[in-house]
Structure formats: structure tokens, C-alpha cells
Amino acid sequence: MKLREQLTALLTSLAGVWIMSYAWIVLKLGSIHVPDAGFLPFLCGAALAVLGVAWLLALHWTKRKEAPAEKRLWHRPLSSLLLMIAYGWAMETLGYISSTLVFVIAWQQIVEKEKWAKTLSIAVLSTLAMYALFVHLLKVPIPSEFFLR
């Protein structure tokens, strides 16, 4: 955890320096009488750079013993995030109904490792519920189906 935090602190400082230079060179600071678009971003960047260094120093001074961590499954959030990105792409390409159906099936199989019968019933019911709520009840325009275009 400490190494991860040190890296984040360093990145925070670097991001702060980058924001300062972007605000100075690209956006322009203006003057104290007439501040320009880069004025507040510059101040925020400077504060971030300082806070990153302060965090690094605080980590250096603080001796922490890590508490035993609960076992966590990192691959589940990663695979679900990838599925969500694919869902966003498929929604526009395949259409709302097909992509939603495929997404829920993929989620239940890859993330939850469910049996096929349960997977299919959850997928059909949730797709129908979403369609009824958003399209019929709330009249939300959805991307049309690829096969019906």
C-alpha cells in the first residue's frame, strides 16, 4: 500500500506541475487586475504539486504496519469494466436490446460464473424490464437494432 501511495503522490505532484505549465503557456494567467482563463488552474496546479510533495513527506515520516487485508478479487472489477466498455460500443453498433441481452449473459458467465438456465432467465427478464421502464414508460430514445435498420 505504501509504495502504491508513494507512486500516487509522485504522480499528483507531476500532474500539478503539468497543469501549472499548461495554464501558464496555453491558457495564460492574465494579471491580478484582470485574471485570465489560466489563473485558477495555475493556482490549483501549484497546490496539487505542493500537496503531492507533502503527501510523500508524510508517508516518509509515518511508520505504518498494514492490517491483514481481506482477500479481494481484482479480476472481477477488471473484467466487468471491460464488459461495460464493450457494452457501450455494442449499444451503438448492435442496438440496445441485443447488446443488453448479450451484456447480461456475458456478465453472468464471466463475472458471476452462473449456470446457463439462471443466466438466460436473468438476461431476458432484466432486458425486458429495462425496455419497459425506459422505452415504454419514460420514452427514452434508444439506439435502433442493427438487424432492423
Partner: peptide, 30 residues
């Protein structure tokens, strides 16, 4: 939670899409 989580994902995705009808907002949300 295995049922609740994907339903929330579906809800957020169509919800955020409905604000401006553009997929860009879905990527921004992700």
C-alpha cells in the same frame, strides 16, 4: 449482488445515455 450489480449497470448506462443521446457520455461515465 450478482443480480443487483448488472441491473445497476444497465440502469446507469441507459440513464446516462438518455441525458444527451450520445455514447460519449457512457465512455465518460466509465
Amino acid at each position: 449482488y450478482g443480480i443487483l450489480a448488472p441491473v445497476i449497470v444497465l440502469f446507469t448506462t441507459i440513464g446516462v445515455y438518455s441525458t444527451q443521446n450520445q455514447v460519449f457520455d457512457i465512455y465518460a461515465m466509465l
